Lab assay of single mutants.
Amino acid sequence: VLHDLRQRFPEIPEGVVSQCMLQNNNNLEACCRALSQES
């Protein structure tokens, strides 16, 4: 999931992506929604 998200959101730091995964229990859809608001 992390690799997938890193490719979709290259401009977001890995730490932020990891934190997002923890908050969303590694749910790819939820992470994508959260990160798209972030970027």
Rank of each mutant, 00 (worst) to 15 (best):
V1A: 06
V1D: 13
V1G: 09
V1W: 07
V1E: 13
V1M: 15
V1S: 11
V1F: 08
L2W: 10
L2K: 01
L2F: 15
L2H: 13
L2M: 09
L2E: 04
L2A: 09
H3S: 13
H3V: 07
H3M: 12
H3L: 06
H3P: 05
H3D: 11
H3C: 09
H3F: 07
D4W: 13
D4Y: 11
D4L: 14
D4A: 12
D4C: 11
D4N: 11
D4M: 12
D4R: 10
L5G: 04
L5Q: 04
L5R: 03
L5V: 01
R6A: 08
R6K: 14
R6C: 14
R6M: 14
R6H: 12
R6S: 07
R6E: 09
R6G: 05
Q7A: 13
Q7M: 13
Q7P: 00
Q7N: 08
Q7K: 12
Q7H: 06
Q7S: 13
Q7W: 00
Q7L: 10
R8C: 00
R8I: 06
R8E: 06
R8T: 01
R8K: 13
R8A: 05
R8D: 03
R8W: 00
F9Y: 12
F9I: 02
F9M: 06
F9N: 04
F9A: 05
F9W: 00
F9R: 02
F9L: 00
F9D: 04
F9E: 03
P10Y: 06
P10R: 00
P10T: 01
P10H: 00
P10Q: 00
P10L: 00
P10E: 02
E11P: 02
E11R: 06
E11A: 05
E11N: 10
E11Y: 07
E11V: 03
E11H: 10
E11W: 10
E11L: 06
E11T: 08
I12H: 09
I12G: 00
I12D: 00
I12P: 02
I12L: 11
I12R: 02
I12W: 03
I12M: 10
P13R: 02
P13C: 02
P13L: 00
P13A: 05
P13I: 06
P13G: 03
P13S: 06
P13V: 02
P13M: 05
E14I: 08
E14R: 03
E14N: 02
E14F: 00
E14M: 06
E14W: 00
E14V: 08
E14Y: 08
E14P: 10
E14H: 14
E14G: 01
E14D: 07
E14C: 04
G15Q: 14
G15H: 15
G15C: 13
G15E: 15
G15F: 10
G15S: 14
G15D: 15
G15M: 11
G15N: 13
G15I: 10
G15V: 12
V16Q: 10
V16P: 00
V16C: 04
V16S: 04
V16Y: 14
V16K: 10
V16F: 03
V17G: 02
V17C: 04
V17F: 03
V17M: 06
V17K: 00
V17H: 03
V17P: 04
V17A: 04
V17E: 01
S18L: 15
S18I: 12
S18A: 14
S18N: 15
S18Q: 15
S18F: 09
S18E: 15
Q19F: 07
Q19V: 08
Q19A: 15
Q19M: 12
Q19L: 11
Q19W: 10
Q19Y: 07
Q19R: 14
C20P: 05
C20D: 13
C20S: 11
C20Y: 12
C20E: 11
C20H: 04
C20R: 06
M21Y: 09
M21I: 10
M21G: 02
M21Q: 00
M21E: 03
M21T: 00
M21A: 07
L22V: 12
L22G: 08
L22Q: 13
L22R: 14
L22C: 06
L22T: 13
L22D: 11
L22M: 13
Q23A: 14
Q23L: 10
Q23E: 15
Q23P: 02
Q23K: 09
Q23M: 11
Q23W: 02
Q23G: 03
N24W: 04
N24M: 03
N24H: 15
N24Q: 04
N24K: 01
N24C: 07
N24G: 01
N24R: 00
N24T: 01
N25D: 12
N25W: 01
N25V: 01
N25P: 04
N25L: 03
N25G: 10
N26P: 00
N26T: 04
N26A: 05
N26W: 02
N26R: 02
N26L: 03
N27G: 02
N27P: 01
N27T: 00
N27W: 01
N27R: 04
N27M: 00
N27L: 00
N27D: 13
N27K: 03
L28R: 06
L28C: 04
L28W: 12
L28Q: 05
L28P: 07
L28T: 03
L28H: 08
E29L: 09
E29V: 01
A30Q: 09
A30L: 07
A30G: 04
A30K: 08
A30C: 03
A30E: 11
A30D: 08
C31G: 05
C31W: 00
C31M: 03
C31P: 04
C31R: 02
C31S: 05
C31L: 00
C32K: 08
C32E: 09
C32T: 11
C32V: 15
C32W: 00
C32L: 08
C32G: 04
C32D: 05
C32Y: 08
C32A: 09
C32R: 04
R33E: 11
R33T: 10
R33C: 06
R33Y: 06
R33P: 03
R33N: 07
R33Q: 12
R33A: 13
R33H: 10
A34T: 07
A34K: 07
A34Q: 13
A34I: 12
A34C: 07
A34S: 07
A34Y: 07
A34N: 01
A34E: 11
A34W: 06
L35K: 02
L35Q: 04
L35V: 00
L35E: 05
L35H: 06
L35T: 04
L35P: 05
L35D: 02
L35W: 01
S36D: 12
S36I: 10
S36A: 13
S36C: 07
S36L: 09
S36G: 09
S36P: 10
S36M: 11
S36R: 12
S36Y: 05
Q37L: 13
Q37P: 05
Q37K: 14
Q37Y: 07
Q37W: 07
Q37T: 11
Q37M: 13
Q37E: 14
Q37D: 12
Q37S: 12
Q37R: 12
E38S: 11
E38K: 13
E38Q: 14
E38L: 14
E38F: 14
E38H: 14
E38W: 15
E38N: 09
E38A: 12
E38T: 10
E38I: 12
E38D: 12
S39R: 14
S39F: 09
S39Q: 13
S39W: 10
S39M: 11
S39C: 11
S39Y: 12
S39G: 12
